[in-house]
């Protein structure tokens, strides 16, 4: 805080990217309460951030990276005892259409695959951008995407979806 010159004020940033951060957090923690905690933490960090953002794309990438890091901390924290099951999370926390087979299947993937699927197919980020955000090599991201697609094809009815 202090003499911050906002490209996006906290309110504008939340209105624009709040759902994006929540969705990424939810895809990782699969739990409504934790996803909300992470969203809150990310935007509190945004308010306290002392650096300057170059543009909105910079803000977006920063928020995604902080959301991933915050959910990592949550995973490793000792007090995280109330892990809800996927069924519970989907039924209690998410108002979803009846046909949520795709989302449900993605949520059954291992955590590292869920994140790349979310960033690639929902956020429409390139492999290079994902690699910068996650902090892994592009080749690693490509191979994770490939494996995630293979698993999805195996789990979803074959030939029903084009990737």
């Amino acid at each position: 805080m202090g003499n911050q010159i906002w490209i996006l004020t906290p309110e504008e940033a939340y209105k624009k990217y709040g759902d994006m951060v929540y969705r990424l957090a939810f895809s990782r923690v699969q739990n409504k309460m934790d996803a909300e905690d992470i969203t809150q933490e990310v935007f509190m960090k945004y308010i306290r951030y002392k650096g300057q953002f170059a543009n909105e794309e910079h803000i977006k990438a920063w928020l995604l990276k902080v959301a991933l890091n915050s959910s990592k901390s949550l995973f490793s924290s000792a007090w995280r005892r109330h892990y809800a099951s996927l069924e519970e999370a989907l039924s209690s926390g998410v108002q979803m259409e009846e046909k949520s087979e795709v989302y449900y299947t993605v949520m059954q993937l291992p955590e590292k695959y869920r994140v790349v699927i979310q960033l690639y197919y929902y956020q429409e980020l390139s492999v290079a951008e994902i690699s910068k955000i996650i902090g892994k090599k592009e080749t690693t991201i490509r191979s994770q995407l490939k494996r995630a697609r293979a698993k999805l094809q195996e789990m979803l009815k074959e030939g029903r979806y084009e990737f």
Binding site: G18, D19, Y22, R23, F26, K32, A35, E36, T39, V94, Q95, M96, E97, S100, V102, Y103, V106, I117, Y121, Y122, Y161
Partner: peptide, 11 residues
Amino acid sequence: EYQKVNQHIVP
């Protein structure tokens, strides 16, 4: 399909 479903994931 994935984008459509994601629209419903909101706090």
